[in-house]
Nucleic acid binder design. Structure first.
Lengths: 249, 249
DNA sequence: CGGCAAATTGAAGTATTTCAACGTCGGTGG
DNA sequence: CCACCGACGTTGAAATACTTCAATTTGCCG
């Protein structure tokens, strides 16, 4: 928790950096220094945060909202390859260029640290460097989770996997409420079109899949972007049973 | 390749560590120390190298062959979420457990470093630590590439993307020969069943997709596991045009 | 209230899965 | 040496799922 004290350079008080999981082991002192070199930026939904191929001079941490990472294809169309939630970091530590472009999927705020001071801080605080590493590994983990979900052959299964991922891996940051006995309420953070793009399907297919799951009683569509999961085990089964490949050995 | 020389602790001389891209900036001296703490292990195709959930006490570097990383699903079936080629590393730096299990997709050899000595070496050599970080980032990159490929709706497109990935990202390590003017010869490192598993399709669909691409003259099937790419641009178009999503704004 | 974007629905065409059968290759054992 | 077997790849045909195009509904904002 960044406290206000006379004369100290707190340009980013209340960023909530202490809340970020991968900063948990970083001493309060270092967090203060971090807060001192950070500038907050706001983005409206749809705005571009960083462009593929550019070499940003900041390391950024998502404070609020959701960003989407996307790759640009040969003919200019773009494909979503991941989402950034609160606490996730992006940017370049080594001056290298970004491999994905980043846009705000909702109104969002990020904390931007200038690269050089940040690197200095990393060198001085092993816990911070460790944290960055942890974050990187967790992103790799998530990317592999996405892969496993994307490889499910049927759209209904991929959608089930998507909802489960929202509950489990993103549960802490995405708006998920639990009502016990396998019932949850999930706020879907991106539009149907974005879901379709992410899950490798058309918006129509996504819509049909939602309603098919709803007809089975596995979910309820409270609003297009607010889903109630009525039977999480049935959902998990849905995600699994598409995967009929027997790589057992 | 291991040469015996009196007295010097070269238990892994000729691992070819110096060849590994992410070790390029590591001084020869450190490489020698690395070689001193490494032990080589061999695996037959199909053997399990590491199991999901286990906490391996080694950091390993693939020296020869290809490993596949796979996640275990609820009912015990497994899903491939990536391949490890020569030079790739896996294992746990912090005693954490593996999120994927690892099996040999072909006969393979790895260089195993005990964790503690390796960590000591990393602390002593910033270039080594940097290299590990670079490797991690490149894995994240590849995982995102896989995501983009997996999200292509048609099997033919995903297969085209797979072949292109083999040429570009894995070109240096996978057996790819170039004959100029867009013609290549690619050795497919995994079985049809594994390709199907990785690409989210059935083996039959993969087979049909190969032959469809061959009928179009875009590739030639020299052997089931040896593909000649006759027109790489047509392949790229194939991979792109499935992606008809207009996220242009 | 009109207009626009997002979500949904319907119907037809296409692609993929599924189940079953067949061919090929490499190894094993008679 | 040859027959047999199993793993792997391929092919065919029917059922299913998805995409595509078009039209309609819904919700939101000016």
């Amino acid at each position: 928790m960044v406290r206000e004290r006379g004369g100290i350079l707190h340009s980013c008080v209340g960023c909530g950096l202490a809340q970020v999981p991968w900063l948990a082991n970083v001493p309060a002192e270092t967090l203060q220094e971090l807060a001192a070199i950070c500038r907050r930026k706001s983005f409206r939904a749809g705005e571009t945060v960083a462009r593929e191929g550019e070499a940003p001079d900041r390391i950024c941490c998502v404070v609020k909202g959701i960003l989407r990472m996307q790759k640009t294809l040969g003919d200019g169309r773009q494909h979503i390859v991941g989402l950034l939630f609160e606490g996730d970091i992006f940017g370049s530590m080594d001056g290298g260029s970004l491999a994905v472009s980043i846009e705000a999927a909702s109104d969002a705020e990020v904390c931007a640290f200038q690269r050089e001071p940040f690197k200095t801080l990393v060198l001085r605080s092993p816990a911070l460097g460790q944290g960055v590493l942890v974050n990187l590994r967790s992103e790799l983990e998530r990317a592999r989770d996405w892969m496993a979900i994307l490889a499910i052959p049927k759209v209904r299964g991929r959608l089930a996997g998507f909802l489960l991922a929202l509950c489990s891996r993103f549960g802490g940051v995405s708006a998920v409420k639990s009502f016990g006995h396998g019932t949850f309420e999930v706020k879907i953070p991106i539009s149907r079109a974005d879901q379709a793009n992410l899950l490798g399907a058309r918006p129509e297919s996504i819509s049909r899949a939602y309603h098919a799951l709803a007809d089975d009683g596995k979910i309820a569509i409270l609003r297009p972007d607010l889903i109630e999961i009525r039977n999480i085990e049935a959902l998990a089964a849905e995600a699994d049973e598409g995967e009929m490949d027997a790589r057992d050995r």
